[in-house]
Write a protein that binds this DNA or RNA. Structure first.
Lengths: 339, 339
DNA sequence: CTGTTAGCGCTTTCAA
DNA sequence: TTGAAAGCGCTAACAG
């Protein structure tokens, strides 16, 4: 298929130096005397030499690949992070190998193993909730790993994320400050999802601080999706008295809630306030515009890349602090109705 | 960093067979006599042996990696395709190395080279419009490549996509059938974007078939985005007489147009009809729900994977036919106003 | 600064 | 069906 590969030796022979010299030049031109640089580069160009990644990784024990496993690739939620990760490491000649787990722990475990087998030099994962044996496997292989989207510090690996608990606490507080006392919550499924757990706990904590609690009937757990959000909203609004505020643990739920409210003729925020979580592009465009939390998605990807690069470079970067998020107040929240 | 790697030899020694046998088992258990399979698998598990991808690719000349370059990873447009690609090839032990080009040809060229250097066994690209030298480079390396999102057959590599021209023709025809005669078009920038070119040409062709033409003032070329769509819509509606139909070459434009219309108090579809292109998740949820073309995004990714696998397996798959798309008529289009 | 010499871990003929 | 042996293309000591 491929005509005989052009190898380092071919280049070396053409220039009249040893393969080692060409290798040095390729990896760090400053290691080669100036007057050789030109000819070597010329030979490389002429032969269209491209180093063999596999051989390189075998000999150097470094593959120059970073693996990343996201819960999903279908949503644009993680796209920015992936993009930022890729950009962060591209400058050092690294590439990203991605996989998605479909929010399934078993699948995630499998993907991690595949990536490890493929010899990635570093790993980026989302969330800290998974079988500890996976973390052990990674640790045993000595592959540096960062965990994103969360900010606990008691995890097996450094976290580059934000405080989900506090963010959810803040949105809820915003609602409480507006006078709301009857709440409904739409949450993702909580098994194996520490982000969701932390968010729900944050909501509860804010409520508790004002002497309020969340009954099971006030929470709907469902799959991520706009349609699911519609349905959950509909269900929640069936109660009497109706809730006056709906806190959504993920943004698609909030979009669904807003669409459903419009269809059902329920005025937002006059009759019910709705909050989202993430501030994706639709949040500012939807009517009414969504009050939500802006999460540092791209920054997480970028910093994860930088962090891994730095570890791979032999440095010992300090454990990063939680990244800031931002409460974005828009039109979907307002004072609690008097009744 | 890594404790001494567990190698094939370790496994072989533990079982009491040769490395070659274990290698055969790993790659195709049926090549090893039945009674050895159990013990070998047991040893692999016990030692937690994981093959070294680099060594493998060096020895076998196959990296088991497929490279994919998308114009962007930020949008969910390509997410489904990426996911499907990944799933399609995962079963054969392949992984996806992704890169995004940010809709920049130079960046794309660079990404392709990086992927090639990393030794991907196959390549998936979006669109056929790029410097022919890149195609030559790929061909020279003998790396199988498929081009997605378009369906021309005169390209350097097989296409797995749909007919953008005809799809745009169809939406436009739908509008013409509804009696519309004054059109506005919101299009992405056309340089290096054959999808956009084909779509615009499709619109023009449909119009021409009814004796209509598109003046430069009736078209806005802009960056992809909802905000850009709003602005373009606003601009287009400034003309007198106003257009009664706005054809959008990409879905974010249509969302923006609908949002802007709502804000400006322009009734859709009574005063103006709006069409999208892609049928992303918001299309059915937005009010009014969007008339659009459903493009086979996931299928393109999946089929691209299968096609590459089949080529890599030594088969000579037939050139795939254009994939079907579907005109989805919803509420955002209606009869042209009488005036 | 450059060349020599060993492998890195695996696959793959080729014989047995 | 299995084993022995020869690399795959590159990097990393170590000399010089």
């Amino acid at each position: 298929m491929t005509r005989r590969r052009v190898t380092l030796d071919d280049v070396a022979r053409l220039v009249g130096v040893s393969a080692a010299t060409v290798s040095r030049f390729v990896n760090d031109p400053s290691k080669v005397r100036e007057h050789l640089r030109g000819p070597i580069q010329a030979a490389i160009d002429e032969l269209a030499y491209v180093p063999h990644g596999g051989a390189r990784s075998l000999a150097s024990r470094r593959s120059r690949m970073i693996g990343a496993v996201f819960p999903s690739l279908q949503t644009s939620l993680f796209g920015g992070a992936l993009d930022a990760l890729q950009n962060a490491i591209a400058s050092e000649g690294y590439t990203v190998v991605v996989a998605s787990s479909d929010y399934d722990p078993a699948c995630e475990a499998h993907q991690v193993q595949t990536l490890l087998a493929n010899g990635v030099d570093g790993l980026m994962l989302v969330g800290a909730a998974r079988d500890p044996r996976i973390h052990e496997l990674i640790a045993r292989k000595g592959v540096p790993c960062v965990i994103t989207w969360v900010s606990q510090s008691d995890t097996a690996f450094p976290c580059i994320g934000f405080d989900n608990h506090r963010a959810a606490f803040d949105v809820t507080n915003h609602l409480l400050d507006l006078g709301h006392r009857r709440f409904g919550v739409i949450s993702g499924r909580l098994e194996h999802n520490d982000r969701g757990q932390a968010r729900l706990a944050g909501v509860r904590a804010a409520l508790a601080a004002r002497g309020l609690a969340l009954a099971p009937e006030q929470i709907v757990y469902t799959r991520f999706g706009v349609a699911e959000g519609r349905e959950a909203f509909h269900h929640l609004m069936l109660r009497t008295p109706r809730p006056t505020a709906i806190v959504c643990g993920a943004e698609p739920f909030a979009y669904g809630a807003i669409f459903e409210a419009a269809e059902a003729g329920i005025a937002v925020p006059r009759e019910v306030s709705i909050t989202g979580f993430d501030d994706m592009w639709l949040a500012s465009q939807i009517t009414p515009a969504l009050t939500t939390v802006r999460t540092p998605r791209a920054r997480m990807g970028g910093m994860a890349g930088e962090y891994l690069l730095s570890v791979l470079g032999g440095e010992t970067p300090t454990t990063p602090r939680p990244l800031p998020y931002e409460l974005i107040v828009r039109r979907s929240t307002g004072p609690a109705p008097l009744a």
